[in-house]
Amino acid sequence: MEATDTDEIQLRHVEKDVLIPKMMREKAKERCAEKVEAFNHCCKDTGFLMVFKCREQNAALKECLTIHYRDPVFFEQCKQEYIQEKLEFLRTGIAPKNRKQKLPTSM
C-alpha cells in the first residue's frame, strides 16, 4: 500500500467506529485538561461524596468533551492523523507507540 494521499485510504469499520473515536477521546482529554484536573482534584478532596459534591466539575468536563466528540472538523483531524500513523506503520512495520521510544545509543 504505497498511497500517499490520505483520501484514497479505505478505513475498516473498526477503525472508523472504534479506533478513531478512541483517539478523539484521548485528544479531547488533553484539550479539556483544565476541566479534567478540576474534576480529579474535587474527587480526591471529597472521597465518597464526590457524586454529590463534584456535579459542577463533572458537568463542565462532560460539556467540554462532548463539544469535541461532536465536532466534525476534530473527527477529520483525528482521522487524518490516524491514517498517517497507519501509513507509517505499513511503511516501517513499527507501531506508533514503539516509534516514540528512544533507541539505545550503545550496544
Rank of each mutant, 00 (worst) to 15 (best):
F48P: 14
A33W: 09
E8A: 12
T92D: 13
G47L: 06
K86Y: 09
F39K: 10
F75V: 01
E76C: 04
M1G: 15
A95P: 06
H13Q: 09
P104T: 01
N58I: 00
R99Y: 03
R91E: 12
L87T: 01
A59R: 13
L65F: 03
A59C: 08
A3W: 13
R91W: 04
Y69N: 09
K100D: 14
D71V: 04
C43N: 08
K16H: 08
C54M: 06
K53D: 00
V51A: 15
E2D: 12
V73I: 13
Q57L: 00
T6I: 11
Q101N: 11
Q77C: 04
E37H: 15
A38V: 03
K86M: 15
V14C: 14
E34K: 08
A60Q: 13
K29W: 02
E8W: 02
E30Y: 09
N40G: 05
I67N: 11
K29G: 05
E30V: 11
G47S: 11
L103I: 05
M24K: 07
L19E: 10
A60H: 05
F48Y: 04
P104S: 08
F89D: 08
F39M: 11
D17F: 14
K35T: 06
H13E: 11
R70E: 15
Q101A: 07
L61K: 01
P21Q: 02
D71Y: 03
R12E: 15
T105P: 10
D45H: 10
E88F: 05
L87D: 03
D17L: 03
A59I: 10
A33E: 14
E26S: 09
A3K: 12
R31T: 00
Q84M: 13
R91Y: 09
P21A: 02
C43M: 12
L87I: 09
E88G: 00
H68K: 15
N98T: 03
Y69S: 08
K44Y: 04
T46I: 00
L87W: 03
T105A: 09
A38Y: 06
A38W: 00
E26Q: 13
L49K: 12
E37F: 11
F74P: 04
K22G: 08
R70Y: 02
I94E: 09
M107T: 14
E2T: 01
M24S: 07
T6M: 08
F39G: 02
A28M: 04
E37I: 10
Q57P: 01
L65V: 04
K97R: 08
V36K: 02
E8T: 01
K53Y: 04
A33H: 12
Q101E: 15
C43K: 15
L49F: 11
V73T: 13
H68G: 07
P96I: 02
E8G: 00
K79E: 14
T105N: 08
K29A: 11
M23K: 06
M24D: 04
K53G: 05
D71N: 14
I83G: 02
H68M: 07
D5R: 01
F75K: 12
Q84F: 06
L90D: 14
L103F: 10
S106H: 06
P104M: 08
L49A: 10
A60K: 14
A3C: 13
F48E: 10
R91V: 01
L49M: 11
K27I: 02
P104W: 06
D45A: 15
Y69L: 06
I67Q: 12
A38T: 10
F74G: 06
E85H: 12
Q84P: 04
E63L: 08
D5N: 10
E2Q: 05
L61R: 09
A95V: 00
